[in-house]
């Protein structure tokens, strides 16, 4: 029996040292046994490596930067849809998610483009700036944190937080700072890149463990795979990790998805202390860059997300392979100038 063909647009093609999840998501979709995926890459910059990975990405189009807003995004998606007939869009960047969530209904009614995203309320509630309240509400340990807008507030916070503490951007980036000078430098560096506010967070010492999961929007966890970071880059990203058997982590995930009725992919970032306490550091409202490990463990989360987006009933996974490792690597592609020229000038390749 032939598989249905789906045209799936995916963002996050920046497979760099702090990689976007796009390539991992695409690999998962290409391995689906249930549908054939034609992949339409959506990029923001001409040097995102995924643009040139033709074995994975069939066609790529440039999007306006997230700061341009949802109207510009919608207009561009209409253009792309007229050329490609998009069935499903999977956005993978925190910074663009808000616009996609806002446009989800419009995309469906006007163009029959399916998405499976968290609601605006779910997206906002788990935001770094609201995480402390979120933890209290759902009975989960969260490090003390404070949202600040000025250096003055940073210096005031030194009375509350003992060094070291963590200075975080509202979307990305985090630095552990050990003194006033480092805190000031981190404030300037992160706010220049990601804007304000900045989040200050208590530093919790322990092992970094993460979970990639998907919720069906009704409170059910379709799948969840916990991973321990084995090799961490200077940006704090896992360059290698291993799937682990940790029921406490899984229970925490199920509880969160159940109580929030989470819709879509998610990543939980957690620190496990020496005393076996689990502190939730962040909830990312999308798949992580290491989501392909879940596929390696027997749970194809991106495939499940596409099926949910298409309105199918998806059965839950109860098991996954433990002790599977992912080991990331970098790879130099040789790209002809004409390809680079096309994406730069025409906005598509």
């Amino acid at each position: 029996m032939s598989k249905p063909k789906l045209h799936i647009a995916v963002t996050g093609l920046n497979a760099i040292d702090s990689p976007g999840p796009g390539i991992a998501v695409i690999r998962a979709l290409k391995e689906s046994l249930l549908f054939d995926a034609r992949i339409i890459g959506l990029c923001y910059e001409s040097l995102e490596p995924g643009i040139y990975m033709h074995e994975l990405v069939d066609r790529t189009y440039k999007l306006p930067p997230p700061a341009a807003g949802k109207d510009a995004l919608l207009k561009r998606l209409e253009q792309i849809h007229s050329e490609e007939r998009i069935d499903v869009i999977i956005p993978n960047f925190d910074a663009e998610l808000f616009s996609f969530i806002q446009l989800a209904d419009q995309l469906k009614t006007a163009m029959n483009i399916h998405t499976f995203l968290p609601t605006t309320e779910q997206f906002e509630a788990r935001h770094k700036v609201n995480l402390a309240d979120y933890g209290k509400k759902h009975g989960i340990l969260v490090p003390e944190s404070k949202v600040i807008f000025t250096l003055h507030e940073l210096y005031q916070a030194q009375d509350v937080f003992n060094y070291p503490f963590v200075v975080k951007g509202k979307f990305y980036d985090a630095s552990i700072v050990y003194n006033r000078e480092q805190a000031t430098a981190a404030f300037h560096k992160i706010s220049a890149k990601w804007g304000l506010p900045i989040i200050l967070q208590e530093f919790i010492s322990g092992e970094e463990v993460n979970v990639t999961a998907i919720g069906d929007g009704k409170g059910n966890t379709i799948g969840a795979v916990p991973m321990k970071k084995q090799y961490i880059t200077d940006k704090g990203k896992a360059w290698a990790g291993i799937s682990i058997d940790d029921n406490k982590l899984l229970d925490m995930t199920h509880t969160l998805i159940q109580s929030t009725k989470w819709r879509g992919g998610m990543e939980l970032e957690i620190v496990k202390t020496e005393e076996d306490e689990y502190y939730l550091l962040e909830i990312n409202p999308r798949f992580p860059a290491w989501v392909y490990l879940a596929v390696g463990c027997g749970q194809n989360h991106p495939e499940a997300l596409v099926r949910l987006a298409m309105g199918e009933e998806v059965e839950t996974w109860s098991a996954y392979a433990i002790g599977k490792l992912f080991i990331r690597y970098s790879y130099d592609m040789i790209v002809n100038l004409d390809e680079f020229e096309k994406i730069c000038t025409l906005g598509k390749l």
């Binding site: 321990k228 058997d245 002790g323």
Partner: peptide, 8 residues
């Protein structure tokens, strides 16, 4: 020796 609960 592999500890599946910690990955160590």
């Amino acid at each position: 020796v592999f500890d599946p609960s910690t990955g160590n």
